[in-house]
């Protein structure tokens, strides 16, 4: 019974935290990923303009490559209007977290040890390292490859 009460408290606390995040309007990594999923998470989704082709699959893609691609969109080196607009608003830390989400093996392939299966030496720092402050201007330090 005691453990049930603890669980209830934990749930309540989590709920309170979540509510706080929503109230402050802070954009979480879950919000960022939801934005990606709007196109990349839909089977058969295609670009609409100026050319029509399927949006690329990201599940299982190399993390370092995903980060490099996002930085290239942000810097303007790579050209696609939708991705430029989205990447412009991503910090280096956001990019690392998005890359970690997609770079990890699909749940169907590995039930456990997901991070270990994907080698992520990468030039990018792990997500645990304090990231440079978000919104520090368009020219992020790692924009050049």
């Amino acid at each position: 019974m005691h453990s049930l009460r603890v669980l209830a408290c934990a749930c309540a606390a989590f709920g309170a935290l979540a509510a706080t995040a929503a109230d402050t309007g802070k954009i979480t990594i879950q919000n960022r990923i939801a934005q990606c999923q709007g196109c990349h998470g839909i089977q058969g989704w295609k670009t609409a303009f100026p050319e029509v082709y399927p949006v690329p699959k990201l599940g299982g893609q190399n993390r370092a490559y995903i980060i490099a691609a996002l930085k290239a969109y942000k810097s303007g080196e790579r050209d696609f209007a939708t991705m430029r607009a989205i990447a412009a608003d991503l910090s280096d830390k956001d990019m690392e977290e998005v890359a970690a989400y997609y770079g990890a093996p699909a749940p169907a392939q590995t039930a456990s040890a997901a991070p270990a299966a994907q080698p992520a030496p990468a030039p990018a720092a792990p997500a645990t390292v304090p990231a440079p402050t978000a919104g520090s201007g368009g020219k992020a330090s790692g924009a050049k490859r």
Partner: peptide, 20 residues
């Protein structure tokens, strides 16, 4: 599946995307 994480994996990517 690329030899370095700097290069994209291509295995299973959409054919039309690769062509584009």
């Amino acid at each position: 599946m690329s030899v370095s994480p700097e290069f994209p994996n291509l295995a299973g990517q959409h054919q039309e995307y690769l062509m584009a």
